[in-house]
Amino acid sequence: MSGSAVTRAASLMSGAMPDGVGVASGLTLTSVDRERVLPVSQALAGLFPWGGLRRGSTVAVRGSVTVLLALLAEATASGSWAGVVGMPRLGVVAAAELGVAVSRLALVPRPGPDLPAVAGALLDGMDIVVIAAAGRLQESHARRLSARARHRGAVLVPFGPWPGADLELTHVRSHWAGLAKGYGHFHSRELTIAARGRGSAARPTTATVFVSRDGMAATPTPLPSDGVWPPETGPVPVEPSMVENVTRLRA
């Protein structure tokens, strides 16, 4: 019984894995574990020893908001709610382009001094809680929040360093394509992400993903025909001012 579950888990994993990335601790997955893992984009799955965001874990993201948003995409699209605390600058349009179901995002941009209480309340009700607390949180509070996530079966995703994180995803470098001297536009971006953590995630891994207007993928997207300036030309709409003027004259 448990043997077949392991095989199934392993075959599921191997399909999602880019070359050169393996499950760090080998075959430790059971079907119970799989139920306790929230899905992530295929391009990122190789970074996680559990193939996704394991419930109860703390996964810190450093260096890139894009990586953070990409983590939320699959889980929110399949019905989970995500809370984001303390990020007033979050680009919601970018989140939607990366596949995040923004209708299931709860944003608390300015938690103020109540940050631990707010994050704790959200951990009780949501599957994923993102918290940006650079230097605003004592280590004891941070550990208590991680413990609460473990207890509630939620995933805590701190943006920035976090004491005792189970896994840390760090943005290593980016390369932008599509931009030249005076023409084109940001068309796609190659991101290198390194992951290292504790226990089964102790072995460092890296992955290269590509972000384009179609979201995040493991392979680069070819430059589209409209990749040159001007980017998009739609029909010229009637300026509202013209309509207003006409009405004013008649009145």
Binding site: G83, V93, V102, S103, L107, V108, P111, L122
Partner: peptide, 29 residues
């Protein structure tokens, strides 16, 4: 999804209780 939505809703109402009504937002594009 309804159960997850209700749980999340209760959590957001609790945050509103902590910080006031204009503290938790859902974005619309």
């Amino acid at each position: 999804h309804a159960e997850a939505g209700e749980k999340a809703g209760r959590a957001m109402v609790r945050v509103q209780g902590l910080l006031g009504p204009e503290s938790v937002y859902t974005p619309v594009l």
